[in-house]
Design a protein around this nucleic acid. Sequence first.
DNA 1: CTGCCACGCATTGGATCCAATTGCCAGCCC
DNA 2: GGGCTGGCAATTGGATCCAATGCGTGGCAG
Lengths: 214, 214
Amino acid sequence: MTVTTQRVAEQLRKAILGGHLAPGERVRQEEVAQQLGASRLPVREALQMLAAEGMVEHEPNKGARVPWLSMREVDVMYKMREQLEPLALAESMPFLLPGDLLRLEEIQDEIEAGVSVEQFLALDREFHLRTYSACGIDHLNATVTRLWNSTQYYRRAFMQISGPSRRWVVNAEHRLLMDALGRGDEIDAGRFLAGHIRRTRIELNRHPEVFGED
Amino acid sequence: MTVTTQRVAEQLRKAILGGHLAPGERVRQEEVAQQLGASRLPVREALQMLAAEGMVEHEPNKGARVPWLSMREVDVMYKMREQLEPLALAESMPFLLPGDLLRLEEIQDEIEAGVSVEQFLALDREFHLRTYSACGIDHLNATVTRLWNSTQYYRRAFMQISGPSRRWVVNAEHRLLMDALGRGDEIDAGRFLAGHIRRTRIELNRHPEVFGED
DNA sequence: CTGCCACGCATTGGATCCAATTGCCAGCCC
DNA sequence: GGGCTGGCAATTGGATCCAATGCGTGGCAG
């Protein structure tokens, strides 16, 4: 059975997002190929794609590895999110359908019902990215998605060391945002979203141990 | 002589940025391979990379083409620049050396001496991107560079139809920005830069013919 | 004359083979 | 004993071959 480049890329993304490939780890083509039952070629090409997306670093003749990010890099990436996601939300809001808002309710209810860290990460991610996708601007969505992908590892580490109070804060902020979305209040929605991201960033900065920088 | 993937990607980027490959044009692997004296493989891989960067669209089994962007897409991409570039500038300013500012002077002097559209595009690009690179955040620089790359075609079309008054405005705004940089005034620099991009975006919106949307 | 199906060409995608580069380790010279 | 050098193993990179996909064209039937 032949395995396509797209499929390999997908699997590798999942492995990195799922934390099965941690920063610093080398990604050997042969190894991945065997594991997925593919030949090396689609793996090579998938790695080139992921390199262009920033999910792996690819030094010629040396191979690919999952990059370490410094605390400052992640900090700046959160600042990028703080700038871009309110824009994405504003561009999306005119196109949001009632069904989209219902789905947000579902996700948030599920989060509040109490879920594992892994489920929380997935649901939180869907909560945010789903609100932006309606804007229909590929470049914007791809950029935001890349920011989420590259920082996922550190978000996980952060959630694992922070207590339930962190969840309460997130839940409250999500509810505020959903309320503004329900009212169609673009100003408030943007403000709440930016504040949510900014506060998360500041909170992250209190935990250098997440980055091995304590 | 064997040609590397990196080199092919570089050449293709240059061809697209230089306008030799216009939106809508197909990019056939065989053709590019012959033209660069490479085999098809590095071309394939380069195209995968460019696809991940958004410089080409790549539909499986159908091939790559340079994407058309709608006026709205470019508008949103300028809004992204308006959000991201002041951030990049703020992150860079603490690291800017006197030599960097001198280089900006050189570039701006050259622009004002009167240059062709093609030279203007290159110099303007260097003027801006150079001010950001000192920040040292790869993800931020790559994102901003992608925005410049993907919109270059439309910037060229815009410059070609706009008269010299457009240049005067740009020059004045560049000088204001340089002045703020020289003073180390981060607030003003960010404000001038954001305004510069915003006004350019608004000006672009007055010319739907650039996008074939009149 | 028109619509549909089948065949063939053009092009892309994957597998395999071989070359080139890197890193490492041993052995040797200073 | 330390450092340099040469060669070997591991891994990546490129070329070529073959399969699969898509698209256009031409012929045949209605």
